[in-house]
Design a protein around this nucleic acid. Structure first.
Lengths: 133, 133
DNA sequence: CTTGAGTCTGTAGTCGCTACAGATGGCATC
DNA sequence: GATGCCATCTGTAGCGACTACAGACTCAAG
């Protein structure tokens, strides 16, 4: 039932993935080249599933290479759960590092904005802070 | 005193900014084209200051366009403090939004990794979560 | 005189899309 | 059957912020 053939526009609508992006994923081999009905790409239920997978993985911040790896592992059955976990754990570390970076920025920015608002500095506190480390 | 002429390598060492990046900044007009001593770029103390400013602003996550604006405002004297504050405040909002995004990812990833570790799912919980939204 | 380090220009690659231009395809309407 | 219009097609170039070469040169020391 999920296998009626759909065109790229419908696939885009169902997955929330941009048409140009779908074609891009095909070009880089992340999505398989589908059969054609005439000149038009013809997708089935599997494609909706796979592209949804890709989208959700991207929303979790995985890179396209990581998504590729996840797709391969997903095809590999349950033996690969440990590998999936390792990939996710290492990505989680990345995410946490980025959060830490951003929080550092946030602290400094918030402090500077407050100082600007206080306005008792002769010049601008943020400009001042940027000029001398 | 800060005005002895230095070469690009020394400027790079003093600011922690990659040589290629310095030339890139010159190309896009973020740093002025310095005079040459022979064929080599010859920098002075002002350049060390300006490039340091750029670096620190970048470390706070400002885009190059924002840095350009900040540099212009910095040259404009103290009247511009309110504009600087607005720029910083709006950037701060961006940073906070990105933190929120990353925290969402973190929560989901951490949950999945835990579920993988628990290992009572027949398949892999993360793969499972990615396949069906 | 040679060697090595530093610098030069110019171009192309990275990531993950996004935005065209210009050509077809297929369906509904007049 | 001509017209309009949307969807789709291919191919290429652009974004931001660098980074990585290749291949030429400059300069000081040994």
């Amino acid at each position: 039932m999920a296998d009626q053939a759909i065109q790229i526009g419908e696939l885009s609508r169902r997955t929330g993935c941009n048409i140009e992006t779908i074609r891009y994923y095909e070009r880089i081999g992340l999505m398989p080249a589908p059969p054609r009905r005439g000149r038009y790409r013809s997708y089935g239920g599997d494609d909706v599933g796979r592209l949804g997978f890709v989208r959700r993985a991207r929303e979790l911040g995985f890179t396209l290479d990581e998504v590729r790896a996840l797709l391969a592992l997903a095809a590999g059955g349950q033996a690969s759960c440990a590998e999936v976990r390792d990939l996710a754990a290492s990505h989680l570390q990345d995410v946490r590092a980025r959060i830490a970076d951003l929080k550092r920025m946030e602290r400094v920015l918030a402090g500077s904005v407050r100082a600007c608002e206080a306005g008792q500095d002769p010049g601008c506190p943020l400009i001042h802070a940027l000029y001398a480390a």
